[in-house]
Design a protein around this nucleic acid. Structure first.
Lengths: 125, 125
DNA sequence: ATGCTAACTAAAATAGAGTATCACTAATGC
DNA sequence: GCATTAGTGATACTCTATTTTAGTTAGCAT
């Protein structure tokens, strides 16, 4: 039989990091979480596995204004994110909760929206 | 008398670029617009002048998710932006037009919001 | 248990955006 | 017009995020 991918402690730790954090993580945050499960895991491994988890659609990327991208477990319903200005952690806000009346020039077609709140998280107040 | 700053064709061209474009520009877009007024203007000059126009509060920076920052003439009322998925130009949407009911964990305090629409601009449809 | 090789670590290389340097140009005060 | 020096153009450099490389480890079929 032809082996195409292997189950490794490192990839398991990276998946576990996202599942237990329950919020979007940067590659660096992912590294720190995964290090608690697999000592010595390297940042290159984190990047490589984030890449393959994205390809598998187990993760999705979250682009943020003025910040490096975060990643979260895929398949959640449409929702938005909150950034703490003190600790810079990103949190999920379940549900969309946004209504808008775009004031756009003629001929523009809207296909998507992104919404971000910022402020202070409970731990930073 | 001590001269503190000089009026240059280049800085005028950069200001003119923002005024005529009437939408937020990246440094590179600014360069191309300004080149039509001052042949041979350099990207270093664009960065330098964007920097000084920010200090003068003539420009403000706009951070975008997954994109390099754009700059627009300062002092406009609170508004949001639209990104064309085809040409990647950013457009302004006058007025805020957003209502939201954040579904946040206990203890979080909201101090700001950012909102972006995406789709296709009139020229790209 | 062994062999094959995917996946790993550590380090170096790359990429892209922005900044610094320096010789030269040109705006301004006299 | 001339001297002064801020601003410019070209390019080298920095910084940070990410990718690649080379050598090593370990998952899995046999």
């Amino acid at each position: 039989m032809i082996v195409q991918s292997r189950k490794t402690r490192q990839k398991d730790a990276i998946r576990a990091a996202f599942l237990s954090a329950n919020r979007p993580l940067s590659p660096d945050e992912t590294l720190h979480h995964a290090r608690e499960l697999v000592e010595g895991i390297s940042i290159a491994t984190v990047y490589r596995n984030i890449g393959s988890l994205l390809e598998e659609n187990w993760l999705t990327a979250i682009a943020l204004p003025g910040e490096t991208a975060r990643y979260e477990v895929a398949g959640k319903e449409h929702h938005h994110h909150f950034r703490c200005n003190a600790c810079h952690k990103i949190f999920e806000m379940p549900g969309c909760g946004v209504q808008f009346e775009p004031n756009l020039p003629k001929g523009f077609r809207v296909t998507g929206h992104e919404f971000f709140l910022s402020g202070n998280c409970a731990a930073c107040r």
